[in-house]
Amino acid sequence: MQFSYLVTFTHPDAAARISDDDCQRVLRELEATPSLSRVRLYTPSAAKDYYTDDGPSPILAFQLDFERLADLEAVISADGHLQTLAALDLASLRTSSVEQQVMLRRPFPVLDATPQVPTGALPCQFLVHYPGRAENFDAWLDYYLSHHPQIMKFFPGVREIEIFTGVDWIDAMPWTRVHYMQRNKLMFDSDAAVTNAMNSTVRHDMRADFEKFPPFEGSNIHHPMWADTRYPVKRA
């Protein structure tokens, strides 16, 4: 079982990008986080989905994975490590709004997890979140986890499936807390691979299953983003 800290920066200018210097400063702080098992830094990409167009991707997002909820909560406490990151004056992110959420990470199998990312490039991840509410959340989640990832694995070129579900958490970060009922992330080798998958016959199967979900409101939001994955250095 793993817990993930998910943070998203949305800039008022959809064309804005984080500067290289600010990106490196963020990465240094994230990689130094205690008890971390994995960090992912997301930056905007582009892909075309047959059914949806939710506009430009956020300027930045990151995902920090931990084995224990207590370890995660420690780094976002009043004297936690990530307060240093929140206090950084990052010029290219200065006017961004920031959302945060802690969730349980659920990996699901794929048919071929071997990446074939072009040399010098990053893989592309399709990030989805459900911001609304289900009439009966238990029934909704049971249906989703029992049906949707079992279709996702047939997407051509999908290398990883992660589904995130809610937990209660405590923090002292200066960022807005959100309580999205569910998220999922699909990893592909490139933005072109995302577009290919989202215009395949499997996408139509996904849509047909979506129409069978137990009643809920709020729809879902999709964003393609480049994914830079780092692992903490193990020290002797």
Rank of each mutant, 00 (worst) to 15 (best):
Q2G: 11
L6Q: 09
L6E: 02
L6D: 01
A14N: 11
R17V: 02
Q24F: 07
R25T: 10
L27N: 08
S35C: 04
L36Q: 05
S37A: 09
R38N: 06
T43I: 03
D49C: 07
Y51P: 07
G55N: 12
A61I: 03
E67V: 09
R68H: 12
E73S: 14
A78C: 02
A78W: 10
A86S: 12
S97V: 08
V98A: 03
E99P: 00
Q101F: 03
M103K: 13
R105Y: 08
P107I: 01
D112M: 04
A113V: 04
T114Y: 08
P118G: 00
G120P: 07
Q125E: 08
L127C: 10
P131R: 10
E135G: 08
E135P: 10
A139T: 13
L141V: 13
Y144S: 01
Y144N: 03
H147W: 04
R159W: 02
R159Q: 01
E160V: 06
E162Q: 15
F164G: 09
V167L: 04
D168S: 15
I170H: 07
R177T: 14
R177A: 00
Y180A: 08
M181S: 01
N184C: 07
N184M: 03
K185V: 15
L186P: 09
M187C: 06
M187E: 01
V194E: 00
N196S: 05
V202Q: 14
F210R: 09
P214A: 05
P214R: 11
N220T: 10
H222I: 13
P232V: 12
